[in-house]
Design a protein around this nucleic acid. Structure first.
Lengths: 194, 194
DNA sequence: ATCGTCGCATACGGCCCGTATGTCAATTGG
DNA sequence: CCAATTGACATACGGGCCGTATGCGACGAT
């Protein structure tokens, strides 16, 4: 069967992406050398260009993967809440929390937008944003949130959370700052209520 | 007098920064060639490294300049408002509006954070953030804004505005989207009121 | 068992950055 | 008024990295 070949191919692909996550997070996108990156998993640039086309393609693959992971995690946390509104708040808080991960911060929040452009136009469609928008739409229909453009509101909410996360992560005392950021986030979000 | 020499030096410095603003805005930081950039104003890389140390130093100088311009402009707009609260809202809206400028967007909002790190730790101290924080502190003392960490609230407000601006700028119909973004911003900000 | 396919390695050219060195004008001191 | 020095800027060099073109060897089809 042609299975053996495909399996191995998938494995090298996964190894390259894992190495990329580590290298991009540690050195930053620009300073990460493709030679070093591939050598770290016993391959060469040939494999990389075969799978991802170019350096940017590799970053896009990594960002898409991480974006999906973040969305899944936030969604799972939201599911555990009673009301949709509480779920929205919880997802925002979870988002802030996840951005404390240096890998997420550097790759998804800093280099991603700079290299790939506006997140809302990524192939992954920025899943976090999509779920938030949908939740807001429902909440507006139920009269819980005041009528606004759902996408605009989702954008601002996510933007606030994102910057809060950056602030927390860059702080010298992240654990002390985190609750302040989350409290301010909750206060801001209440501005959306009807 | 030693003046003549200093004047000429300042002029070349200004010419380099102007060329850098144009090149960084058009090509992006990574893709901007220092050879091309300096040649565009009739100089060589020698002048550049003499004045700014390295490529990053040039970006830092440009960002600092633009950041100061933005802060001054926002502050001027805020001054025209009757109440401090209105001023805060107006400054936020002005911030969103300014970020529609592709130069600001690319240099200050995208490449700046990616290359120089967290904006709140820039030498320019991100003047926008500073004024916002101070205004919030006063508003809290007056009981207009509910008690929160002023820096946290300022961070989130600015973050929301920033992302709104990116969204507007990346939109295919910026003029149609701008009012939606500004309305959503005002709604969010009301969450801070006591 | 042979041939084609393709995943991956190797080789090459070119761009760009940072530094070290050179040069010439302006300034200073006598 | 002139020589020495400073400093702004140009030129030259080395190294690294990316993208592409080419080569090879293994796996799968027939």
């Amino acid at each position: 069967m042609a299975n053996r070949r495909a399996e191995k191919m998938e494995e090298t692909r996964a190894r390259l992406m894992a190495a990329a996550r580590a290298a991009f997070a540690e050195k930053g996108y620009a300073a990460a050398s493709m030679d070093d990156l591939t050598a770290a998993v016993g391959l060469t640039r040939g494999a990389l260009y075969h799978h991802f086309g170019d350096k940017r393609g590799l970053l896009m693959a990594v960002v898409t993967e991480m974006d999906a992971e973040m969305a899944a995690r936030a969604h799972a946390i939201g599911q555990q809440c009673g009301s949709l509104w509480d779920a929205l708040l919880a997802e925002g808080a979870a988002y802030i929390d996840m951005a404390r991960d240096p890998e997420v911060q550097r790759i998804v929040l800093l280099d991603g937008p700079a290299v790939l452009g506006d997140p809302s136009q990524w192939p992954s469609q920025n899943s976090c944003l999509q779920t938030t928008t949908q939740a807001l739409r429902t909440l507006m229909a139920d009269g819980i949130v005041r009528p606004l453009d759902p996408e605009a509101a989702a954008r601002l909410i996510n933007g606030a959370a994102l910057n809060a996360a950056l602030w927390v992560a860059a702080s010298s005392t992240p654990d002390a700052v985190l609750p302040k950021a989350q409290e301010a986030f909750r206060a801001l979000a209440c501005g959306l209520l009807a």
